[in-house]
Design a binder for these strands. Structure first.
Length: 640
RNA sequence: GCCACCUUAGCUCAGUUGGCCAGAGCAGGGGUUUUGUAAACCUCAGGUCGUCAGUUCGAAUCUGACAGGUGGCUCCA
């Protein structure tokens, strides 16, 4: 006789019983997909024979969804082996919102085929067959997968420690190896979709065998599947490339892959952001400098960039001399630092540059404004003593958060990368600086992930990332400690006792690439930029020709008052113009008819269709000034 | 760079199994209209169907190469 507590209900039993059976006989639930026995996630087929505490996992729970997705990956395996029996299964993990399966097959799977494979999966899941878990030892596992010609599964088995048991799951004739848990039948597997195919590599290494990866999504209900697919569609509309074209901000063309043609309004936005950062730099005692775009290769050789990153460097040859277009600004900044002697009393010295850098990124990695070959970094280098590291870092972290918040970003992913195997600098200085970075993060009570061994060879770093509309991560800010380059490029300062010492260099970018940042901003706001960043803040629309001249005068007046304003006096109906400029996401539409002309008033409408009523110009100017000063997201001062 | 896919007018897209001068809507030009808060009406023009080669009596449509792009993978100072 033993006692089991299931969701606070105590059940007694005197014979071994599966959780599934236990639930069936004691509850009327129909959405249980797995269970946790004393906190450990297990299959429902698990047998219970002694006292324990069980909590049930529902299909709608995060863990339940993951199980559905995991099992869905297996059913994909079941299906693909029926279509192409010689397919070799590799790995099929769950990911956010779904799963993928890496396979090896001589048949290349195209996206067109996915719907027919999906149909077969549906057919299999409709059979509502039992999924049977079997625990076997390593030798038996080898035997099973040797028989099935599953070369990759065999490689995986090799990596499993001796005397560890292995679980395999039987899906009718299909067998997959997996820790589980899994569904006990395909009953809960109804709402899924195969999404896309991609290439991938065995062990994620491009030197290894190329595999095919099939992505899918799976949900507990039809509605959840539908709303996920809808969400993707909505996200697509926020794509910065589409918005950029619609709002006439920038374009790309074939002759300049990975390089931006900025149009007036896009460049205006770019410069608003740049000016905002410039203001920050002034207040925080940066020296704003500018260094050459093209430098002799000997300098890049000396800095170490040429050895490490030669593939990414654009070459220029002139009169038999070889130059490189700068891929980063640091060597240039050291040249400025090296002009004249520096004393320990001068430190920290901070050089900032909106450095335009070019990197010949592989064609397959380019992505709109997010990943390009020529971009502008809000780059700076802080030359300081080891003792100054921590306070400088702490300040930077806080500033980065403040600045991101000002732009409206609150979800920021932070990663701390520590010493890699191949590195320069003594262990003491690594200890000290890793500690400095971690304690700076901790003291600002910031959640961050550790990336052991992912630091640069010259020092540890902190990276800050934001998400785009499809929740892809893009790195923006970075703070990197560097113990190498100052020495390589002969930078030093005179210490208190007169000796020459190499300074520590902190590379840091706040927005990272301004281009990428514009991309992220556009997706975050779906083009509805807050007033202070809107390239055109107001457009004046006349009702008829009678008011056209007055509109021009009004525009001059508003522009003089620092409101970015244009006039649309085309011979069109007001409805047409309102629609047009609403779609262009201009924050304010100022409408002038005979009434407004007579009273010298403006009728104010926002891009979202809100009518702010008729007011005089002064009141409008004051409202805009206030909202811009506050960097508000609102267009109406009365909004709380 | 690798895998799959895509490329037709300024934009968004139609173009059936290869078959007469390749279509639509919006945008644009010209007229009419002088308009009151999300699309007035008439009319005109606009395309070497990404590029180059090939198959064919005939190619936007089939094949190949290349370019650019999209989604991933790898990479990312």
């Amino acid at each position: 006789m033993f006692k089991v507590t299931v969701d606070n209900k105590v059940i007694e039993s005197n014979k071994e019983i599966s959780i599934e059976e236990l639930v069936k006989t004691n509850f009327s639930y129909d959405d249980i997909v797995a269970a946790k026995v004393d906190g450990t996630l297990v299959d429902l087929s698990q047998l219970i024979k002694s006292d324990c505490d069980i909590s049930l996992v529902k299909s709608s729970d995060e863990e339940g969804l993951e199980i559905i997705r995991h099992t869905c990956a297996h059913v994909f395996g079941h299906a693909i082996k029926q279509v192409y029996p010689e397919t070799k299964m590799v790995i099929g993990p769950t990911i956010n919102n779904g799963f993928y399966y890496d396979i090896f097959s001589d048949n290349s799977i195209s996206e067109k085929e996915l719907s027919s494979i999906e149909k077969l999966m549906k057919k299999l899941s409709k059979k509502n067959y039992k999924i049977i878990r079997e625990v076997i030892d390593k030798d038996k596992a080898k035997e099973v997968f040797t028989k099935r010609n599953e070369d990759y599964k065999l490689k995986l088995i090799e990596e499993i420690p001796e005397n560890e048991t292995i679980a395999i799951y039987h899906h009718e004739e299909y067998i997959d190896m997996c820790r589980g848990p899994h569904l006990t039948s395909t009953k809960f597997l109804n709402f899924f979709k195969l999404m896309k195919v991609s290439g991938s590599y065995w062990k994620g290494d491009s030197k290894n065998q190329q595999l095919q990866r099939i992505y899918g999504t799976a949900w507990d209900t039809k509605d959840n599947l539908k709303s996920y697919l809808n969400k993707l569609e909505e996200a697509e509309k926020r794509d910065h490339r589409k918005i950029g074209q619609k709002l006439d901000l920038f374009h790309f063309q074939e002759e300049a892959p990975g390089l931006v043609f900025w149009h007036d309004k896009g460049w205006s936005l770019f410069n608003i952001i740049k000016d905002f950062i410039t203001q920050y730099l002034r207040v925080n005692h940066y020296q704003i400098i500018n260094t050459p775009q093209v430098l002799d290769k000997s300098l890049w050789k000396k800095s170490g960039h040429l050895d490490k990153f030669s593939d990414l460097i654009f070459d220029v040859t002139s009169e038999s001399k070889e130059f490189a277009i700068k891929p980063m600004s640091c060597p240039g900044h050291i040249q400025v630092y090296n002009q004249g002697l520096k004393s320990y009393r001068d430190l920290p010295i901070k050089y900032a540059e909106f450095g335009i850098v070019h990197r010949n990124e592989p064609s397959g990695t380019l992505h709109g404004l997010m990943r390009i070959r020529g971009f502008t970094q809000d780059d700076a280098h802080i030359f300081c003593t080891p003792d100054q590291i921590e306070s400088e870092i702490k300040k930077l972290i806080n500033d980065i958060y403040d600045l991101y918040n000002t732009f409206g970003f609150t979800e920021i992913k932070v990663e701390l990368s520590t010493r890699p195997e191949k590195r320069v600098g003594s262990d003491e200085i690594w200890d000290k600086s890793e500690k400095a970075l971690a304690s700076a993060l901790n003291s600002s009570s910031i959640n961050f992930e550790h990336n052991e061994g992912d630091g640069a060879f010259y020092g540890p770093k902190i990276d800050f990332s934001l998400l785009d509309s499809l929740e892809r991560e893009w790195q923006l800010g970075t703070i990197q400690l560097d113990f190498s380059m100052p020495t390589r490029l002969d930078a030093n300062y005179i210490g208190a006792s007169g000796e020459k010492i190499a300074p520590v260099m902190i590379h840091r970018a706040i927005l990272g690439s301004l281009e990428r940042f514009v991309g992220i901003l556009l997706e975050e706001y779906a083009g509805d930029l807050p007033l202070w960043m809107a390239p055109v803040q107001a457009v004046i629309l006349n009702i008829s020709e009678n008011q056209a001249n007055h509109c021009e005068e009004l525009a001059d007046e508003l522009n003089s008052a620092n409101i970015r304003c244009s006039v649309d006096s085309r011979n069109e109906k007001i409805n047409y113009k309102v629609r047009h400029h609403s779609m262009m996401r201009t924050p304010y539409l100022l409408i002038i008819g005979d009434k407004e002309l007579k009273d010298n008033h403006i009728s104010v409408r926002t891009r979202t269709g809100e009518d702010l009523g008729v007011m005089n110009v002064d009141k409008f100017v004051k409202m805009v000034e206030t909202l811009v000063d506050e960097k508000s997201k609102n267009l109406n001062i009365n909004q709380e």
